[in-house]
Nucleic acid binder design. Structure first.
Lengths: 239, 239, 239, 239
DNA sequence: GATGAATGAGGGTTCATTCAT
DNA sequence: GATGAATGAACCCTCATTCAT
């Protein structure tokens, strides 16, 4: 079997499954075990399929979907070119499956967030940390979503737009809730939602993902502070 | 001449020259006239070259650089395939030229900003409006820069990274200055710089560029407010 | 399957394998059988590859390497354009492989020559016949080597120069040996080596390869005589 | 005007005209003056034409006719692409003109050779020196003739074959004459003619043209010796 | 007489996809 | 279930040639 040339520089566990956060970020249990358990039950066929998906995830995120070759993917896995097409109708299908399973996992996260988020908590901090963790734990998918945002293929585009809209609506909803509770000032929640998410995304991809020696906790705190207070020298509004 | 299939959905003037803001955003004169005047003086060769560049700008922004075909570009212009290669060494050269002329224009903008920005003004508002205007006037280049951020080609990648770093450094510098002047609270200016720029970029591309009936001024004001005050219900810090 | 346009005018067996003389010229057995036997064992893939190489050999020798199109080659074989690139990295690789296998075969010949050449024999006759046979059995490769001697590609050039230098050194070495044994007069062996090889090459390509009704044995004897005695009317030096 | 990249390493005077030996090699007068005189009379148009031909000669000899670009040639001269086609119907016409003027010049040489060659002289030496000088003084055309011997274009091929046949017939004729005079032993003059010319050509191109510090006179003497005596240790037949 | 912008046919090469095994 | 040889459409790019100026 040929050796892979791809460098694994992210903290991903390099498994399509694990790249998808089935568990909530607030869960402290090790979800890996569950996945591992499930993995054990995978048939040989399912294993191959999963390996291909894992490899596709990495290759797509590194070379971009269009430039990524099926040959790159199968070389990574060590299977034949045709095997890819036994498991997936075409290249696009694999990408769509990756994206969809990511979104499915997200929906599970939402339930947890909604249920566990304490309204008295520092919502900005919680939200930022959740989104940041989400992106950090799914570096590859994050990259793909970022890079393919304007992919010429309409289906892919739509799917990714869905993800962004989802985040925006989450933020908007949280802000509206905060306003009703009196912990958020009056504002255009739609615009603010986009702004907050964009802020977090940029920081995750520019600082947390790219810079090696970065204090993640420090970065997240700074963002939360920015979200809460803005840049002006006022007393901490929480005080 | 063959008919173009590309849809011109953006508000760009669809001219490589006009896409590049040679004049400062603070200038209220209509620079278009000047550019038009210059255009009159273009030789036939230069006209062809410009037309190709204009078409390349659109095609690159719509299909992505790698998926964009030279044949798409020349079909748009109505010239032969070879004509592209008479004017540009290769596809990449055209992209690099577009990016570089954009960056050159930016540098001119900077000088104006530095010279004209009143420290007593609402810096966040001025900065946001400047960046937003810059991006809005160069929708296509903005799209390209956004889409090719992780292009596999190292040269392209570097060029675009340069652009982002430039914006980040601008924001960081403005924040540091504000801190020294006492109009900005103490913070990690590097992180905040990335956050502020990311916020603006997201809003421009998600709201201003994509949504038709958007009150640009309203959006920019909201962002400035967010930057100044954050989301918390404090009294306006400027008061 | 499309019809070939290439005319097979040479006496080549038109097989990349048979073009390469695996057996020594002094062997009287028919090596073709052995090669045929081996051919039987070739997998379908190897057969395709061999067919492409055979066709490339002919096309390269007829049109010249640079003018030869991959499409010519695959049309000859009856496979798709892509099939060529499945088997060979590029056009050059196929050429280099042809040249290298020829040179490898040569090295085997050398061992035989060195081992079997009787110093008491008419060395000039043996050498001439060996080189002439080598070239005659590999007409196409001979043509290629002749035509691409000054190919702009440095790698190709070097490879072919190697072949010529090899022949020159062989001749030089033989002459030096003859001088030590007293059967060759004192001379500048380096110059003489080039002269002898050039003489043989010219005759092979001008007379043996091109003229149909030529008595090969007669030609070779005439050359040997020339090499031994020159043109002057002296008594046969061997007498 | 762009600078040329071509290295002028040969001893050519780098003039299409001077590359063609209008004067016999045995003439000791400086024919350059005559040519120069003629040059003076060239109209500007004729000068341009000549310059293009000169450049074509060099480019063809260095890159090979097929790989040579018209753009290379005109860049060398410093004229526009179209200028080439004003003076020559196409690329091939320029090559054919170069070859033809070379052959015309040859015919003039022949008359001189035939008239001046002393039958009592060392004919081999005279013939070798004449051919060698001819090739050395026309390095570029020599290269072209050597490289394009098997050019796929039939017209070019034929023209070059003509040159070789001419040389062969010259040698054959000289040998037949020598035989009649009793200064050459009985032999197959046709084969010997090819052999003698091939010997000289190889040595010129392998040793004299390529190796820098080569004693041309020594090389020519060695060849003559080889032609006269062969390789065997006989007493000098001339004694 | 010369120009040089423009042409377009054609070449090498890539790669997603198919299908017989 | 997996293979991998084969495919062929499509792309980037080259360059001899044309023609309006």
């Amino acid at each position: 079997m040929k050796q892979s040339n791809l460098k694994n520089t992210s903290q991903d566990t390099f498994s399509a499954s694990s790249d998808i956060p089935i568990s909530s970020v607030s869960m402290n249990k090790t979800p890996m075990n569950e996945i591992a358990d499930i993995s054990e039950k995978l048939s040989k066929k399912e294993m191959t399929r999963k390996k291909i998906l894992d490899a596709a995830l990495i290759v797509f995120s590194q070379k971009g979907y269009d430039k990524a070759n099926v040959s790159d993917i199968v070389r990574e896995v060590g299977v034949a070119q045709g095997t890819f097409y036994y498991h997936f109708k075409d290249k696009k299908t694999a990408l769509v499956e990756l994206l969809n399973s990511f979104f499915d996992a997200m929906k599970k996260l939402v339930a947890n967030w909604a249920a566990t988020t304490d309204t008295s908590a520092d919502m900005a901090l919680v939200f930022s940390r959740n989104v940041a963790d989400l992106l950090r734990k799914n570096t590859c998918l994050g990259q793909i979503i970022r890079n393919e945002t304007n992919n010429p293929d309409p289906e892919i585009r739509l799917l990714i737009k869905e993800f962004h809209n989802y985040l925006y609506r989450q933020a908007e909803f949280a802000l509206l809730l905060g306003m009703r509770l009196g912990v958020v000032r009056e504002m255009d929640a739609r615009i603010a939602g986009v702004a907050l998410v964009g802020m977090i995304e940029s920081v995750v991809f520019e600082l947390i993902d790219r810079v090696e020696d970065v204090d993640v906790e420090h970065v997240i705190k700074e963002i939360s502070e920015m979200q809460n207070r803005g840049i002006r020298p006022t007393p901490d509004p929480r005080s």
